[in-house]
Design a protein around this nucleic acid. Structure first.
Lengths: 151, 151
DNA sequence: GCATTTTTGCTTCCTTGTCAACAAAATAAT
DNA sequence: ATTATTTTGTTGACAAGGAAGCAAAAATGC
């Protein structure tokens, strides 16, 4: 296995481990909310005028899946939908007070994760960060172009 | 968003894009086989004496899911199971001739992907590779330890 | 040697997400 | 203006994967 593959597979492995760990921790402090739901709450809390399409694009999921997910969160009372007077098509989401509580808890958890992994990131120099970020950006742009080629 | 998050989210985004692209390409040249099936065939082709547990650990999936997946591939005639005379519990998998054909096609596809992304990797120096790999390894070990703490 | 625990694999039920078809609104084309 | 196209969101059928419970074999403990 060459270094290119090692880097890609290494990061895939890394992300899998994070998903595993986060799931465990979230089940603890955010009982009743699945990772995908929390992820959704996080996005809506951060971005004003979130809608089904934006959420779908950001999560690399279909609009159908997001439609179901948001309906579930509305039923739970975590988010609510609203429209704009001059637009009868688009439907936006915002957090309810209950949703804001979840959002806050998630933020705390996030800080906890950062604290947990601090020892690793302390060893990374500014140059290493910039080097990785530049790689990610270049590769990402390249893949965007390739995706565009397909339609 | 700090650089730590940027790196992690950047790579998550990158892998999502790859999954998307690979799915498209595979649907083209490996009709009748889903990405997870191809992934499974790849692993079995590379590792002698693959079994349900090893596959599950490698893919971060449950043994139940792998059990179903391998059964499907056996039904399709892509892989076959075998046992060892001194072990009545473990069940191993190997590729059939048909499976080897799929494996070969997948390898070609893989080379095609490398060729497609060559321009990006050519710009990465040996030092950058080593730096990223060292980061991945350190972080991975750290997360392993954290996972171990949970049980 | 026997009892207990762990490992391995399977099955059933349930949740989550995709796909395809669709409707309604908005935008573009002519 | 009115027709065609695109965008946005929903639904129902289906497939993939997880969780829990189970059985048989193997490993461990005593």
């Amino acid at each position: 296995m060459n270094k290119e593959e090692q880097v890609i597979m290494g990061f895939r492995d890394l992300l899998n481990k994070m998903v595993l760990l986060n799931k465990f921790k979230m089940e603890d402090s955010l009982k009743g909310y699945k990772p995908s739901e929390v992820h959704c709450i996080e996005y809506i809390g951060r971005n004003v005028d979130s809608n089904v399409v934006k959420l779908a694009e950001s999560f690399y999921m279909t609009t159908g899946a997001i439609s179901k997910l948001t309906k579930k969160l509305i039923k739970k009372g975590t988010i609510e939908s609203y429209r704009k007077p001059d637009n009868k098509k688009e439907i936006y989401f915002r957090l309810t007070d209950q949703g804001k509580v979840i959002y806050k808890i998630h933020e705390e958890l996030h800080k906890e994760f950062q604290e947990r992994d601090k020892s690793v990131f302390e060893q990374v120099t500014e140059e290493q960060f910039d080097s990785m970020l530049s790689f990610v950006e270049k590769y990402s742009r390249h893949l965007d172009a390739e995706i565009k080629k397909l339609g």
